[in-house]
Amino acid sequence: MAAIIQAEHLTHIYGQGMPDASKAIDDINFEIQEGEFVGLIGSTGSGKSTLINHFNGILKPTSGKLYVDGQDMWANPKDIRKFRFMVGLVFQYPEYQLFEETVEKDIAYGPINMGLSESEVAQRVKQAAQLCEIDQEMLQKSPFELSGGQKRRVAIAGVIAMQPRVLVLDEPAAGLDPEGRDNILSQIKAYHKQTGTTVILVSHSMEDIAKYADKVIVMNQSKLAMYDTTEKIFARADELLQMGLSVPQVTKIFLKLREMGVDLPADVYTIPYAVKTILAAVGKKEVWE
């Protein structure tokens, strides 16, 4: 099966030819398969945002190639909108892009731009609203009357309504309270499971990445530092810490326990798995009387 997104020596230089040119991403190579849930982590300024802005052609690579569904994205620059509909990008703080009179119309903006028929648009809006738990009453309100978390959901629904094959989210939970955070992320996960859409999630929260992602890309100083399954990434805690990143709390505890000489695996990163491992260890040794 061809990869849904494939980067080949992808490089982007801001302000090329100017004295203050800077390499934002440098020779990036990776493949993402259809249906995967990939986390993207990296410290501030590591090139995460620049990378995802390439996924739907907001930025054009300085050199290198980007293939979406096996097609070279910039082979014909006029076709770029086709890829924009194929890869939905939800920016940081997406609530600032809302502009319509009603929530319903705002969600419909993307599908209308795609040139879909009226009935098709209406159906997609309904579906996207349902997925993002936006009820009928809210659909008729002005987006400016809503709370922060609600606005965020509307903005995400606006992208989901285009039914992209890849959904890219840049810190969708930033600035929300813990409940809003869990709500949004679990909705995205449910959407991923339900539709089989490929999801790329950028986050600074290792807990969120551990909880939701199957694979993780780690960016460090403009380069792709690691790309592997989540447990293998979090097993390399030392390297992550050196990059100014972190590991989930529970992984930290397990690392400390290992340091103390307790025999436990290093790839523990979620609470349920941690409980299982500890129970197994206790059952085996019976030292915790």
Binding site: R81, R84, F85, Y109, G110, M114
Partner: peptide, 26 residues
Amino acid sequence: IMNAQKARGAQLDSGTLQQRMKAMVP
């Protein structure tokens, strides 16, 4: 904002003058 609307398929640099002005609303 321009990038966000472009990601939703806004066409800012083509079309007739009227279309372009309409495209500026979002």
